[in-house]
C-alpha cells in the first residue's frame, strides 16, 4: 500500500489531458483507478483574483458532485480533495466517450439509424438536467464535452462542475439551459430538433418548468439585444 506521500507524488501520474484551467492525470488511489484534476494558476490574471477563483472552483466542484450523487445523478465519486494544491481525486469512468464525440459520430451515420440514438441521448440529457435542477444544482458550464457516456451509451455522467453553484432561482436555471443550448447548437450545427427533445424531456421531469422555460425565452431575447451597436 502506498503512503499518502506517495499517493500525492504527481511524478508517477500519467497526464491524460491538459485543459484550459486544469490538468487531468490518471493514477491509483488505494488500488482504485483514479482521475486527478489539478487546477493550476493562470498567469494572465491578477494573483489574488487567481487564487480566489481557483479555490472557489475546487470547492464548488466537490460540493456539487456530492449534491448530485445524493440525488442519484451519475457523477464521478470524489475520493479525496487537497485544497493546498487544488487537486481533486475522483473515480475514473472507464471506456467513456464525450457526448460531443458520440453525437458527431452519429451524425456521420445514415440519418435514420442516427436519429433514434440521438433522440434517446437527448431524452437522457434532458432528464438528467431536470434532476440536477430539482436539487438546485446549477452546472454553469453545460456543453456536450462535459457530458460523458458510459460504455453502451445508456448512462450519462456529468462532469466538470468548476463553474457550478447552488441556487433555486429560475433565472439561474434558465441561464443554465441557455448555455447548453448555445453550446449544443454551435458545436453541432443543424440539430435544433434534437435540442428540442432535450427541452421536452426536461419539461416533463423538472419542477417549476413553466417558469424556467419562460426565463429561458427571456434570456434568449436578452441575447437578441446583444447585437446593438459596435
Amino acid at each position: 500500500m502506498a503512503s499518502p506521500m506517495e499517493i500525492c507524488d504527481s511524478t508517477t501520474w500519467t497526464l491524460v489531458k491538459q485543459g484550459a484551467e486544469a490538468r487531468v492525470y490518471k493514477t491509483q488511489f488505494y488500488n482504485k483507478n483514479t482521475i486527478v484534476k489539478e487546477r493550476f494558476s493562470k498567469s494572465y490574471r491578477h494573483p489574488s483574483l487567481d487564487e480566489k477563483l481557483t479555490h472557489r472552483r475546487t470547492n464548488q466542484e466537490v460540493r456539487s458532485i456530492l449534491r448530485c450523487r445524493k440525488a442519484g445523478i451519475c457523477t464521478p465519486a470524489v475520493y479525496f480533495v487537497d485544497y493546498s494544491s487544488h487537486r481533486i481525486f475522483m473515480e475514473e469512468i472507464p471506456d467513456s466517450v464525450t457526448a460531443r464525440d458520440h453525437i458527431n459520430n452519429l451524425l456521420q451515420l445514415s440519418a435514420e439509424a442516427a436519429e433514434q440514438k440521438l433522440q434517446s441521448l437527448a431524452q437522457n440529457i434532458g432528464n438528467t438536467l431536470a434532476e440536477m435542477h430539482n436539487v438546485d444544482c446549477i452546472h454553469g458550464d453545460l456543453t456536450t464535452s462535459n457530458i460523458l457516456l458510459k460504455k453502451g451509451f445508456e448512462k450519462i455522467v456529468v462532469i466538470d462542475f468548476g463553474l457550478s453553484f447552488i441556487s433555486g432561482l429560475t433565472e439561474d436555471k434558465g441561464v443554465d439551459l441557455y448555455v447548453l443550448e448555445r453550446a449544443f447548437l454551435s458545436t453541432h450545427p443543424n440539430t435544433e430538433h434534437i435540442f428540442q427533445i432535450v427541452l421536452e424531456s426536461y419539461k416533463k421531469r423538472a419542477k417549476k418548468t413553466e417558469e424556467i422555460i419562460k426565463k429561458l425565452d427571456e434570456v434568449r431575447l436578452r441575447g437578441r439585444k446583444r447585437t446593438m451597436v459596435g
Binding site: Y178, R182, P189, V219, R226, M228, V229, G230
Partner: peptide, 22 residues
C-alpha cells in the same frame, strides 16, 4: 466593443458565436 462581446469561431460556412455577453 461598446456594443458587442462575442467569442466567435468559423465552422461550416458560418462565423458561429460560441460565447457572448448575456
Amino acid at each position: 466593443s461598446g456594443g458587442n462581446t462575442q467569442v466567435i469561431a468559423y465552422l461550416q460556412r458560418r462565423y458561429r458565436i460560441f460565447g457572448e455577453t448575456i
